[in-house]
């Protein structure tokens, strides 16, 4: 696999510009690391659309149906019990348990999908060992660029990044 160049920025505006202009400047932006979400860059990086919401919806609805089914089976079939003349399938009273458990399981499904799509847990990410990385969770903006094989190209890219305002540029193994 190719090596990466990590370019560190302090200014958000210049960083966004460097990320956007990558195609013109002939380098390929692999990923960006920022201390807070920058939605405007997400589209540039052509990530796959997240499936979190459909998964949550399906998980929640199935759980709610299962919970209602359990209530129905136990109260109307397995242990029918006349309580104050109410119907055995007392739907108004059976609404709240499916509602609460449906929401809980939807949330759990969402979390699981989040871990999967964010590729977590990944405690041994080699990125963490790189010198220029640590600021990305604090106050720095880091651009990861596919490192050109050719030494001349590499120095050209490095030059362009410095022109954009990168304060340091590191080469790392991915």
């Amino acid at each position: 696999m190719t090596q990466l160049l990590l370019a560190e920025f302090t200014d958000q505006r210049r960083f966004v510009e460097a990320a956007r202009r990558g195609r013109d400047a002939q380098y390929r932006v692999v990923e960006v690391y920022t201390p807070y979400p920058l939605e405007e860059l997400h589209d540039e990086l052509s990530h796959r659309e997240s499936r979190i919401r459909p998964v949550m919806f399906v998980g929640g609805v199935l759980t709610a149906a299962l919970a209602y089914g359990l209530e129905y089976y136990s109260a109307a079939i397995n242990y029918p019990y006349n309580s104050g003349g109410r119907p055995l399938d007392a739907w108004p009273a059976f609404m709240l348990v499916p509602f609460a458990t449906g929401i809980l399981v939807a949330a759990v499904c969402g979390f699981a999908t989040f871990l999967f799509e964010a590729r977590l847990p990944y405690l041994s990410n080699p990125l963490f060992a790189a010198d220029g990385y640590g600021g990305a969770t604090q106050d720095r903006f880091v651009l990861a660029i596919e490192c050109p094989q050719d030494g001349d190209d590499r120095s050209a890219v490095t030059k362009r990044l410095s022109d954009f305002g990168a304060i340091s540029i590191q080469q790392v193994e991915p």
Binding site: T34, P35, E39, H42, S50, I52, M56, L123, T137
Partner: peptide
């Protein structure tokens, strides 16, 4: 958990948090 603040992670994070 190995959070690195990549745009991919932030994107799914925001989706999940809002949902």
């Amino acid at each position: 958990l190995g959070w690195c603040g990549s745009s991919r992670q932030w994107h799914v994070y925001e989706k999940l948090h809002l949902a």
